[in-house]
Amino acid sequence: MTRDRIQEGAGSGDAWRLGTVASAGRPVTVFEAAGTLYLLDELIAKTGTATPGQTGVRDVIEQWDTWRPILTKLAGNGAGVQSLERDRLDWLPAIPNPGKIVCVGVNYRDHVAEMGSAGVSPERPFAFIKPQNTLLGHRQTLWLPPVTRKVDWEAELAIVIGRKAYQVAAKDAWNVVAGYCPFNDISARDWISQPVPGLGMDWILHKSFDGFGPLGPLITPAEFVPDPQNLAIRLSVNGEVKQDSTTANMIFDVAAIIEYFSSVMTLMPGDIIATGTPAGVGHGRGEYLKDGDNVSLSIECLGELSTEVRSR
């Protein structure tokens, strides 16, 4: 079963990851090395490391080629630095301020089938945009909007762009990836039940409510992910597994997605691309999120993203 392959994180040795938490009311970067969390600023100060500028996650990714060797060196220099208790942290979205969040719809064959379109094979990725207000951190609360009754989950692998990319060929796409992160593309299914004649579904608004994009807890650099097209991905609600698949089932892989999107728009460091969801969404089962639910999304090598659901 794919669930047996789910791991807590990127592993040991010199592996490291980045995320964002709130401290004294402002976002600060946390740095994980060999499973231990530190405040990046404290680690830098303790080791006397010279840095190229601001230490926010997006700032780091915008100068990814400069920061990567610095962070790799820091990963082996945590001795004497106060570690953090992850369960006591106030987690924010791994990147609180991405330039854009571009999403792929209907990108797993089994999900296409469960949504009533078995046999459909799109010729190119189907895209939509989610705004920044949708982002939610690990263990933060998703407040159910009072105007919708069918709020659904979608476990997804998110790509974090690390270099400016325009008209990138698939064979070169891996060079622009900084890392990967769990992402939950929450949707209000009752907002797409009645398409507008001549216009179709409103793909933007039904996915744009506040908190409809949990992201995190940490970004795992691409170098620590052996094969992004062979990662177990699983989502459970209150401990009951709903989605249990692998990224090998994507219709369009990471490279093809980057090639296609970069043929239209310039992808910038810190941009996020959500790559679609496998079968097992609530809408296919007639099940939806309700007050008191706990959603857990795990991706092999990348960790676990938890979301508490509450009604206003």
Rank of each mutant, 00 (worst) to 15 (best):
F183C: 10
M268N: 14
V196A: 11
Q140S: 11
P197A: 10
M115N: 12
G284E: 13
H206K: 13
L92C: 01
V160D: 00
A232I: 05
H111S: 04
G276C: 09
D190E: 05
M265K: 06
S298T: 12
G13A: 11
G216Q: 01
T275H: 05
D87C: 00
H283M: 14
E240W: 08
I186G: 10
F128T: 05
G280T: 00
E42W: 08
E8W: 10
A79P: 02
G270Q: 04
E42R: 15
E42P: 06
N133Q: 11
D244R: 10
L142R: 09
T51K: 07
A118G: 05
A33S: 14
N77H: 14
G179H: 05
G179E: 03
D4G: 12
P122A: 08
T47N: 15
N175F: 01
C181L: 09
D152S: 07
L267Q: 08
L89W: 03
V147H: 13
K242I: 04
I161E: 05
P93I: 01
M1P: 13
I192G: 08
G19Q: 01
P278S: 06
L235F: 03
L84I: 03
G270E: 06
T134I: 04
R3H: 15
V196I: 14
K150M: 14
I273N: 03
Y288H: 09
P98G: 10
T49W: 02
G284L: 08
V309G: 03
